[in-house]
């Protein structure tokens, strides 16, 4: 009898204190959607693509006026030119990505079962350049952002559906590593991605309205006023933003398109499944 009680107790305890990551991608998405639905009952799920601009009327008016004359049109034209320019060896981008540019953005991020790693669009752009003997773009801004933004613009309106093959333990592990990264506090300020973009979303950090995590990846690369003011052209990739966020909480940032940020993107983009691509876009 004692033995039975002990077994039952052990089973109960193991259920109760099991690891926080024992949920599936579908359960994570459902839980996050439910959390935001309860937090903002008047905001429709499809409006989450607009980030903080769905939460504040004042911010929304400014954002809409910026979108009337987007500051990134010229960069998109450069992106298109990049797509149409063959490599020195005569190959084109289609040799890496296929002929139809509208089908590219929404294939990323994805799990590469052969190499056992998450592949990102910008990571594969660099890989394609290297494979064709080209000097690769810088990883976070400049031409890589223009090109990625143009590819994203070709996919506008498509529904995001990041797939984590549940029968592949390596893919599941990469997704879980991304989730752990998202929820782990880091840096001297001891803040996680989730602290700002889940639990405190809709509140202000200094003058910035914190955006909800659901919908984040739908509009990248983005043109940010802050990046433009700091002497750049304003454009940047998702991994540039990750590095900036980590630095803001005083943590050492990781390499763009390295394992940590690629796994994070795998999880982060998954949390926008069911929403549509709306890129590029303006952000503060």
């Amino acid at each position: 009898m004692k033995k039975v009680i002990l077994i039952v107790l052990a089973a109960g305890l193991s259920l109760g204190v099991g690891p926080a990551f024992a949920t599936t991608q579908a359960e994570d998405i459902a839980a996050l959607k439910a959390y935001f639905a309860e937090r903002w009952p008047n905001i429709k799920d499809e409006d989450m693509v607009n980030g903080a601009y769905s939460l504040s009327e004042d911010k929304r008016i400014n954002w809409e006026s910026m979108r009337d004359f987007p500051p990134y049109e010229d960069h998109l034209a450069i992106g298109e030119e990049i797509w149409n320019t063959p490599f020195k060896n005569g190959n084109t981008w289609a040799s890496c990505f296929g002929d139809d540019p509208s089908t590219i953005r929404n294939r990323f991020p994805h799990w590469n079962a052969r190499d056992k790693k998450v592949e990102t669009l910008e990571g594969n752009i660099i890989q394609c350049q290297k494979a064709n003997g080209e000097e690769p773009f810088k990883a976070k801004k400049g031409k890589i952002a223009y090109f990625s933004a143009w590819l994203a613009s070709q996919a506008n309106g498509q529904t995001i559906n990041v797939v984590v093959p549940q029968d592949d333990p390596d893919a599941v592990a990469a997704y879980e590593a991304g989730r752990q990264f998202f929820y782990a506090k880091r840096g001297q300020l001891n803040l996680s991605c989730a602290d700002c973009h889940v639990y405190q979303s809709g509140l202000y950090a200094r003058g910035n309205l914190l955006s909800p995590a659901r919908g984040h990846t739908t509009h990248f690369p983005v043109w940010r006023g802050k990046w433009a003011r700091s002497g750049g052209d304003g454009f940047g990739t998702l991994h540039r933003r990750y590095g900036g966020c980590n630095s803001q909480v005083r943590a050492k940032s990781f390499k763009a398109h390295g394992e940590e940020y690629s796994n994070l993107e795998y999880f982060h983009a998954s949390m926008s499944n069911g929403l549509t691509i709306e890129a590029p876009d303006y952000r503060e």
């Binding site: 690891p19 926080a20 990551f21 949920t23 994570d28 839980a31 996050l32 959390y35 989730r179 752990q180 929820y183 782990a184 506090k185 880091r186 001297q188 001891n190 996680s192 989730a194 889940v198 639990y199």
Partner: peptide
């Protein structure tokens, strides 16, 4: 001190996950 605190933080957060 920062190195030691960073390590302790990383260890504490090893199993971080959603709490909603």
């Amino acid at each position: 001190d920062q190195g030691e605190q960073g390590y302790r933080q990383a260890m504490n957060q090893k199993n971080a996950g959603p709490r909603h």
